[in-house]
Design a protein around this nucleic acid. Structure first.
Lengths: 94, 94
DNA sequence: CGTCGCACTTTCCGGTCTGGCAAGTGATGC
DNA sequence: GCATCACTTGCCAGACCGGAAAGTGCGACG
């Protein structure tokens, strides 16, 4: 029930991030920032939280100006996300 | 998007409470407490939050030992809940 | 070459949310 | 009387949240 909701994923911004990550194979930092409408620092922290949980993998290409940080969902991440979705559905549909 | 998620409803316990309230016409305090697996004080506060938002109505029958407090979802509450569900669905299904 | 701008990250910090514990109220039942 | 049910309220500590600002790395532009 309630306890099946993953607090790491339940936070709105991280939920939206996971939703995108679950459908796209790869997403960049700027894209996510625009998509979620959050600040650099905010997104950086949200993604760090997802990383710490090992729900996403980071790939850094280059440094400095042209740099691109891309995220990918991990197996664990996908499993956690699916579980979360199911928990949500269970609550919502009684 | 994210901004369509109602923070009053998004909190897991309150989400579960609203889900029950949305299907049952009337729910008692003890039932909700058991159903959500929370303490008296916790539930009391969660419901007070929903009341303040005018998402639920309270009806108190009697006082003291045999007392029963029952909750009912309001029109506003139902509207907010539906909106929240749609927002969730929009996020989850991209 | 210097400086501007992009792409992040990290630190600091105030504010909100959360939830337990404990005490208080009202009234019944043993 | 005393335990019990049904709540409510106050106190409070810990978690989380997100903005602001400063820092790093490096390519682009004049």
């Amino acid at each position: 029930m309630i306890e099946d909701l993953d607090p790491v994923i339940h936070a709105p911004k991280r939920l939206a991030a996971m939703a995108v990550l679950s459908t796209a194979t790869t997403v960049t930092f700027p894209f996510l920032r625009e998509h979620l409408g959050v600040s650099d620092s905010d997104l950086s922290k949200q993604m760090a939280t997802l990383e710490r949980a090992e729900y996403v993998e980071v790939r850094k290409a280059g440094r400095g100006r042209g740099a691109t940080t891309t995220y990918r969902i991990t197996r664990t991440g996908r499993a956690a996300y699916d579980r979360h979705r199911r928990a949500l559905a269970a609550i919502l549909d009684g």
